[in-house]
Simulated scan of single mutants.
Amino acid sequence: MAKEIPDLVAEARTGTGKGAARQARRNGKVPGIVYGNGKDPTPIQLDFNPLLTKLRAGRFMSTLWNLKVEGQDDVRVICRGVQRDVVKDLPTHIDLMRLHRNTRVNLFIHVDFINHEEAPGLKRGGTLVVVRPEVELVVTASDIPDHITVDLKGKKIGDVIHISDIELPAGAKPTIDRNFVIANIAAPSGLRSEDNADGGEGEGEVVETTEMDPDVAPTDAE
């Protein structure tokens, strides 16, 4: 399930601080900092348009990247922060963290649902209610899964899918230490209306949320 590691091309940047960052932006670049793995922070810059394309494609911060800088060894990194213009919502600075191949890191991994056509509950008009389209897992940098899979085969109306129902990749584990809900098969609206008319009380799903502890990264003063 490990994904191919895509390249992220950057250039070494001379100088740090507010002035150097502004100069990089005037040149059509997005300034950034690479830090971590026991090494000194390294200032870099990336071409604006390719970076914007990657950001808009989604999952940028949950992707392991192979950072390529001319004259330097390739290094694996993940994004720990993207600063944006408050008006235009365009990237103005990026923070990247170096990873060793054995580093354990928290990442949000996409949940993929399969075999919709083999779920009796969906055939009867039920609705798949996705509570968590992504799940935060602790994974090894050298073996980051592209997704985790939920098999809907045999699922009936009223069935609830928990994290314990999913086979996780070897070495991966949820950051939340409880059996939280991923999705459920809800009854058709007509059936729910009939139940309400009969005085039945529906029990709503509690949508749990979690927040990542942000890493503190050295950045250019803005």
Rank of each mutant, 00 (worst) to 15 (best):
D151Q: 09
P91Q: 04
I166S: 05
D146S: 10
G171D: 02
K153T: 15
I94N: 07
A141Y: 01
V135Q: 01
Q72W: 10
G71L: 07
A170S: 12
D143A: 14
L90S: 14
V82W: 09
N106Q: 13
G171C: 03
E134I: 01
R76E: 12
I109M: 05
G158K: 02
T127D: 02
I166T: 04
G154Y: 06
G171K: 02
E167S: 14
S142G: 07
T103F: 05
R124G: 09
C79R: 06
R80P: 04
D143V: 01
T103V: 01
I148F: 05
P91C: 05
H93M: 13
T103M: 10
L107S: 08
I78M: 14
K153S: 14
L122V: 03
R104E: 15
K153F: 03
E118K: 14
E134L: 06
K156W: 00
L107I: 10
H162F: 12
D85L: 05
L152M: 06
V135C: 04
Q72A: 14
T140E: 15
V82T: 10
V135N: 02
L137E: 07
R98V: 09
E167P: 00
V105E: 08
V129M: 09
K123E: 11
E136T: 11
L107T: 06
D95S: 15
I114A: 06
H162L: 11
H110S: 13
I163A: 02
E117F: 03
I157C: 04
E136Q: 13
V139N: 02
V135D: 02
E118G: 04
V150D: 09
L152P: 03
D73N: 15
L122T: 03
T103Y: 06
F113D: 05
H100P: 00
P91L: 05
A170W: 00
V105C: 08
N102T: 14
R132M: 05
R124F: 05
E134C: 00
V82I: 15
G121M: 07
I78H: 11
G158L: 03
E167T: 15
L96A: 03
A141D: 00
T127Q: 10
D165M: 08
K123P: 00
D89W: 08
I161P: 04
G71D: 08
V139H: 02
G171P: 02
V160M: 09
Q83N: 13
D74T: 13
G71Y: 08
A170P: 00
L152Y: 06
K88E: 13
E167W: 00
E117Q: 12
L168N: 09
L90P: 00
I161L: 06
R84P: 01
N115Y: 09
V77I: 11
H100L: 13
K156Y: 00
E136L: 07
Q72I: 00
T140P: 00
R76I: 12
E134N: 10
I94Y: 06
G154E: 04
Q83M: 11
A141H: 01
L96V: 04
